[in-house]
């Protein structure tokens, strides 16, 4: 069981325009003992509103699993917004992009984006999320030194 991961993130955010995909990801994460509190969104704007909450209402360690292809705003658009957040808020957020894409250009753009830590394929393999959370936290994230 991945106790370290449970301690590390204090909020898990899921964003996918297809509610069914959120449900599948939620279940998968639960079965892998990633049971931290959830914020589940199907509209990108709701996630941005969440990230713009006052600092004292915003969790300290946020793990975001964001879909790539959504109407109005893609996962990479969200990543651009994350880069514009105050540094203090950015340091609370770790962002993974989850997608069914097999297009090399998409994957390359995701992997090169400074706000995105990794690309995960659908259906979500939650054990990979656990594995990544076992690794050292990237510098500047979740209270580590930049």
């Amino acid at each position: 069981m991945d106790t370290k991961a449970k301690l590390e993130a204090d909020c898990l955010v899921l964003l996918d325009d297809v509610p069914l995909h959120n449900l599948i990801a939620d279940k998968m994460l639960g079965y892998n003992n990633l049971l931290m509190p959830r914020q589940i969104f199907s509209e990108a704007q709701d996630l941005l509103d969440f990230l713009h909450k006052p600092a004292d209402e915003l969790p300290k360690r946020i793990l975001m699993l964001v879909d790539l292809m959504m109407p109005e705003m893609s996962g990479l658009d969200i990543a651009e917004h994350v880069l514009e957040l105050p540094q203090e808020v950015q340091s609370r957020c770790r962002m993974f992009i989850v997608s069914s894409t097999i297009d090399d250009r998409d994957i390359e753009a995701i992997e090169q984006h400074p706000a995105v830590e990794c690309f995960l394929n659908k259906p979500l393999d939650a054990s990979r999320v656990s594995d990544i959370l076992q690794q050292p936290v990237p510098n500047g994230k979740w209270g580590t030194a930049a």
Binding site: V18, H21, I24, A25, T101, I102, D106, N121, K122, P123
Partner: peptide, 13 residues
């Protein structure tokens, strides 16, 4: 990848 693969990945999940 979205319109064909995504529903298939839902079924797989």
């Amino acid at each position: 990848s979205h319109d064909i693969r995504a529903p298939l990945m839902s079924v797989l999940g």
